[in-house]
Amino acid sequence: MIGQMMEPVEFRPVPKRTLPEKTWATTGTDGKRQPNIINSLFIDPQECENHNFKLFRKYDEIAKNETRVETYNLDGAEIVFVAYGTTARIVKNAINTLAKDGIKAGMIRPITLWPFPTQAIKDAADRASVKAFLTVEMSMGQMVEDVRLAVNGKKPVEFYGRTGGMIPTPKAIVEQAKKVLGGAK
């Protein structure tokens, strides 16, 4: 996916890999092999299901190996923010402000939204110090339900979001956090 960038992006060179031979590719048979066919049509329900199961084994493998997440300041945190991208940087400022007011706050920053870092959120929900979660998004809550699924009712999960290109301020986030903690006490 290519999105509109707010800030410059630095591309790191991708290291060269040796790829397996593409025996499946449609390159013309040159009279040396049977024709290759690339398709995704499984007209027999059983074959189609087998293919779906195969794909899901692949997704499981991806979820196991490719999930990326940053956790920040979780030790002793009373409130855990979940935020990604630009919002996550703003949340870090809010966490510093909250610390000055004597409130310990931490953050989980999904780097990959799929696979979603469910385990990191689960682990945070199991921490005794954590009273509540607050997801902060520049949307009407595209992520909050994933967070709720991961927390699985163990702690309240609240949401704060801005839209249309409006950016949440550290001040507003701090206020929201205090409100959530007030309600959770």
């Binding site: 048979t29 290759n36 066919i37 690339i38 398709n39």
Partner: peptide, 27 residues
């Protein structure tokens, strides 16, 4: 050209064209 051809099948009744042409085929 048979062994130097790559065909592309559509969606429609001829979706299975990839089974009929004796060359590399793509859906």
């Amino acid at each position: 050209l048979v062994d130097k051809t790559i065909g592309v099948a559509p969606v429609g009744c001829s979706v299975f064209a990839y089974d009929y042409f004796n060359c590399d085929m793509h859906e």
